[in-house]
Amino acid sequence: MGIREEMPLLARHEGVWDGVYTYYNATGEQIDQHRSRLFCRFKEGSEHPYHQTNYYSWDDGRTDIRDFPATYADKRVWWDNDLIKGWAAEVGLDQYNRTVMLYWQRQGDPSLYLYEMIQLSDDGTSRCRTWHWIRNGQLETRTAIQEKLVSRDWAAMEKEMEARSA
């Protein structure tokens, strides 16, 4: 069995998602906000059967791209790249099959780790995510993310983006 069969909830996240990330400090004050477009790809048989690329943009014109190729083993997606090391797993205790949990640690900063919870809507067209950034055992930052599915056909949208940038 492969990643799609062993992680059917995560497989429902395949596609392109547009959203907004809002960051809050430990006292609840908003400290940042930006837009996002995420490409969540499943490539069975590949060295990286899950591959996510995040495109971020701020109102002041700043942009950032983060690439997260991942391996798969033991019903978890595993990341180990220059930015993070961690995993994603479906939460089997969720009888409604809506919840994916992630843990990751920033490379080079062992005092900081993050837990993320993703809730997928029953119709699979929207999701919300929350991150808890913890440094030395204390909450440092919370991130709230709201996203809408743009397309399941990430490959076509990827080709369209490449054609526009050429």
Rank of each mutant, 00 (worst) to 15 (best):
Q33S: 14
T27P: 00
D82E: 15
W133A: 12
I84N: 04
L139T: 13
D80G: 08
A88W: 13
T63V: 15
K75I: 01
Q30S: 10
N136P: 01
Q138V: 13
Y72A: 05
P110L: 01
T125R: 13
T27W: 04
R127Y: 05
H13T: 15
L9G: 10
W133V: 13
V91S: 09
R41V: 06
A156K: 12
G124W: 04
T130D: 11
S165T: 01
W78L: 15
S57G: 05
S57D: 12
E116G: 12
E116P: 03
V77N: 01
H132W: 08
A89N: 00
Y56A: 05
D74H: 14
D123P: 02
W131D: 13
R152V: 04
L38N: 10
M157Y: 03
M161C: 03
S111G: 07
H48W: 11
Q119W: 07
V20N: 04
H132V: 07
R98W: 00
T71I: 05
P8A: 09
L112N: 04
E116S: 13
N81T: 07
F39T: 03
L10M: 15
E90V: 09
L139R: 14
M161F: 08
G61A: 08
P49L: 10
W78E: 08
Q107P: 02
Y72I: 05
L112D: 02
Q107Y: 00
E90W: 06
C128D: 10
C40S: 07
R142H: 06
Q33G: 03
Y55D: 03
T63M: 10
I65W: 00
G108K: 14
A26T: 02
Y115N: 13
Y21C: 07
T27A: 14
E90K: 11
N25S: 08
